[in-house]
Design a protein around this nucleic acid. Structure first.
Ligand SMILES: NC(=O)c1ccc[n+]([C@@H]2O[C@H](COP(=O)([O-])OP(=O)(O)OC[C@H]3O[C@@H](n4cnc5c(N)ncnc54)[C@H](O)[C@@H]3O)[C@@H](O)[C@H]2O)c1
Ligand SMILES: NC(=O)c1ccc[n+]([C@@H]2O[C@H](COP(=O)([O-])OP(=O)(O)OC[C@H]3O[C@@H](n4cnc5c(N)ncnc54)[C@H](O)[C@@H]3O)[C@@H](O)[C@H]2O)c1
Lengths: 220, 220
DNA sequence: GGGGATTTGTGCTATTTATAACATTTTTTG
DNA sequence: CAAAAAATGTTATAAATAGCACAAATCCCC
């Protein structure tokens, strides 16, 4: 069975909301309530979950901890994931010091750059290597995911390198669209692109309120 | 006529690719070539553009500078946009110093926090104000967009405040889903959520290559 | 300046995605 | 304990989105 990508993309949002509910001490939740928290219809949530099994109890709802565990397992979050960062400039250093990755099982285990000022230096107990050692390093100690924080002109080259070294998932902070072979996952983090999708609706000036169709996923 | 949100969401990608082409000195581009650069079918691109008018020339393609200008106008990027940042911690300071916003017409003109260590200090020639002055400040000098970089527990409260002050677009870096009244745009920047949409495909282990359906937009 | 090659814009069709509705099960209440 | 209320999983229906294919326009080359 082939599960739609858009369904996979919603699962992390369900997991995030379930974590917040668990935090608050909630033990069960209905698709209705979960939907209200996320701005998604209850039918959508039930349908999404039904791709993977039966997790709820009629008349009651879903066990928060149980469903969270199931979703984490579906997403492969029941293990640790190793990542390599390329580009240790201002953004790269901020990424290295972000504590939001580890609690979800994501760990940066290598960092690369070209700048002689940066190569050899230590950030967050990680020594920056020259990017020319990337293939060799990843052959010795492989990673699952590459994180790219270099200028856009250098990004394609860096991504090619990561792919050649066997990396099959890229988190791309550079404002460009890379070409990758099929089977390699890429996700873009680009605040400017997101801002630009909002200005379209803003420019309709004070008067207009409802213009948008259904909101394409990344809303909210 | 009601233009699908997913079409609007692609326009900034077209603009970004056109900027790169203009940089390289290209004067015209076909939907074919633009599509190759973005991993989008040529038909899709032509259909998207046809919602707004006729920008191409048969047998030739699109004038790069001309189409870029048209798209920027459609998106409302032919003016400057004012933003307020809330939360001047580590991420907030990184956002303040990011030079990617200004070239596209986005400017942070206010910064707010609650921490007495931070309020009153200056970052990038901007004095941080206490968040309790938010409504008053925005009444005097309004902004179009709010940028939220506070811990997730504080984010809903901050967003409510921004909305009450008349802000109708939010760029949200906090890992949570806020509730906002209809007509208010929200976009999420959440690297962990994106990573989690990739691990699903990675966990299928070395053997599997093609699992994904069509990729939901943020790919590439 | 004529003819083959390109490439757009769009009507039509196919596919994907979301919603609605309901039978079934469980819980709660009186 | 029976009846009403609540909530799931799933089938059917509707809506949204993408792709195809082609007439019409333009370009380029000789
Ligand atoms: N998505 C976001 O939120 C966001 C925010 C800020 C910056 N950015 C983008 O991230 C990138 C980096 O931004 P920054 O402010 O850190 O810039 P920066 O100049 O401070 O850092 C870039 C680093 O990349 C290194 N580098 C250059 N070419 C390289 C190569 N081929 N291999 C390895 N390293 C290389 C440089 O030596 C430098 O250390 C830019 O593309 C920028 O647009 C994205
Ligand atoms: N999306 C991303 O790429 C990304 C990256 C890093 C951090 N984050 C998120 O951004 C947020 C901030 O992260 P950080 O590392 O900068 O944390 P931080 O603790 O360094 O900064 C948070 C700031 O928010 C301020 N704050 C708290 N409550 C406030 C309120 N009610 N009003 C105004 N200001 C308030 C604090 O005083 C502090 O200065 C967190 O939610 C974090 O998860 C997102």
């Amino acid at each position: 069975m082939e599960i739609p990508g858009v369904v996979i993309a919603r699962l992390p949002l369900y997991a995030q909301a379930l974590e917040a509910l668990a935090q608050k001490g909630e033990e069960v939740v209905s698709s209705q309530r979960l939907g209200e928290a996320l701005g998604i219809t209850p039918a959508q949530i039930r349908k999404d979950l039904s791709y993977f099994g039966r997790f709820g109890k009629q008349g009651r709802g879903y066990n928060v901890a149980g469903l969270l565990g199931s979703i984490r397992q579906i997403l492969g979050l029941d293990r640790q994931w190793r990542m390599a960062l390329v580009g240790v400039g201002r953004l790269g250093r901020a990424i290295l010091s972000y504590e939001g990755f580890a609690p979800q099982g994501f760990h940066i285990v290598h960092a690369f750059d070209v700048d002689p000022e940066v190569v050899g230096r230590k950030f967050e107990s990680l020594v920056v290597r020259h990017v020319r050692e990337l293939e060799e390093t990843l052959a010795q100690e492989p990673v699952d995911i590459g994180v790219v924080a270099v200028p856009p002109e250098a990004a394609q080259e860096v991504i090619d390198r990561l792919v050649r070294a066997g990396v099959r998932a890229i988190l791309n902070y550079a404002p460009m669209t890379p070409r990758v072979p099929p089977g390699v996952q890429v996700r873009r983090i680009d605040p400017v692109v997101l801002l630009e999708t909002m200005t379209y609706y803003l420019k309709g000036q004070e008067g207009v309120r409802f213009l948008q169709g259904r909101d394409p996923l990344f809303l909210r």
